[in-house]
Design a binder for these strands. Structure first.
Lengths: 242, 242
DNA sequence: TGAGTTATAGTCGTTATGACCCTAACAAGT
DNA sequence: ACTTGTTAGGGTCATAACGACTATAACTCA
């Protein structure tokens, strides 16, 4: 491992390592009332791909874990803390960047809508609908597409959906998350039946007032609130050793 | 990204990047006739952890993709080509190695038993039962445990199991794979019913002669034979760009 | 010839799932 | 005050999947 290469050789041989993060949040379309998936992108202020939009990211600090670096991406970009953060994939193709050999370990995060509303666009940070995030720098189009695919796969039977919502939520809101992610209509009655039986949610004694219809009951998520869902068994945080 | 750090700073800051591979193969216990999961380990010939057993691995070459590096691990260790190769996880904890900051992108591979029988132990390469692969160097115990967990999760409804077997196989052999991975007994009749309906296997007109019971029919896998199963949608091979 | 073992087919009760219906509870308009 | 529209939340029914189990077929070995 510690080969006998000298400094200049290692300089040219060793691929650069960076951490990027796909940050998903839910926003409600004011006109239709439907939930949609959004994500923040940052404008490239250097070559290559100057001016294009790209995923938040940067080099890995010497004294931070992979997950910490991803959290830092999130804070730097949106000033938010994630409710869900998990490793997505390591991308290391030879031609990812024209200027250097670059390996990116990509994380994906979910943030709550109440937090996401606080995050404002700036000149170099802008939120996009996930479906409209195309034409990005590097291979980020493919990374976003893969992150969406993984999100769809995870929501099916994980506890991921709750991390899109606040602490208390109605079943209609939760169903909106599923519909936004899966892209199809779900029967309200069947949806209710499934959730009431399987997953770890509990009804509170409160209802949501102020709507123009029958006030829906508020529910609360009682399962693990950590980064990774229990269904997919990501190693606890960061494991030590090569 | 291209920070203004000079060469010596980058030398000390940039974490080393390595690729490791967990290689699983099936072997049949001669006494019980049951299938078991084995994997090859290599003996460390340097510090740290000199003399301990470790996963095959090494640095990432400047002109090879992540997947190519994993394939190379496999060839160098076992002289085998994988029938299945997929990225497992990137491990990057701060204290993985005492001597340096090391980030390892770990792949996992499946090889067929007919190939695995060819691979012989040498002084520095030895095959272990997966359950007995403990006390390894670095954090490799945890990596193996996680790979097994992922294997269990994938076999449930993927096409992974077939990659443990040769081109033609009996349903009992296939069931043996599932039982070895899941660690529990499966009803032969129900197992048959499930596979006949859902997955992509086809009966051949041959049977396996030579056993001491009724000769079982041979089946053939007709699905995709590539690295990643279609159910989990890993990005096609390697994607370019940071 | 019979005993033992595995292959393979079928049965039956339970459970999950999708499509559909009905009533409750509210706001807004008449 | 009453009607209407809309969503919340409870239920039914047929179908599909699943686990446990039984039965028969096909082979080897003693």
């Amino acid at each position: 491992m510690h080969s006998s290469a000298n400094v200049s050789e290692r300089q040219s041989q060793a691929p650069s390592l960076a951490i990027s993060t796909v940050i998903f949040a839910l926003r409600t379309d004011p006109s239709t009332g439907r939930s949609e998936i959004w994500l923040p992108l940052v404008r490239r202020i250097r070559q290559p791909h100057l001016g294009k939009w790209a995923l938040p990211g940067g080099p890995l600090g010497a004294r931070e874990s992979l997950q910490d670096a991803a959290s830092r991406n999130l804070r730097d970009t949106t000033a938010l803390d994630p409710t869900y953060l998990e490793q997505l994939y390591a991308f290391g193709g030879l031609d990812r960047s024209a200027t250097q050999r670059l390996v990116s370990i990509v994380y994906w995060a979910l943030v709550r809508p109440d937090q996401a509303d606080l995050a404002r666009d700036s000149e170099n940070v802008r939120w996009f609908r996930a479906a409209e995030a195309v034409g990005l720098a590097f291979d980020h189009d493919e990374i976003v597409a893969y992150a969406l695919e993984r999100l769809r796969g995870k929501i099916a039977y994980g506890s991921v959906a709750f991390h899109f919502l606040g602490e208390r939520f109605t079943l209609a809101q939760l169903r909106g998350v599923y519909e936004a992610v899966l892209g199809k209509h779900l029967d309200p009655a069947n949806f209710r039946r499934q959730l009431r039986s399987a997953t770890d949610i509990a009804a509170t004694d409160e209802v949501l007032q102020g709507g123009r219809n029958r006030p829906p009951r508020l529910y609360r998520y009682t399962g693990p609130h950590s980064g990774a869902s229990p269904t997919d068994a990501v190693p606890a945080a960061q494991a030590p050793g090569p």
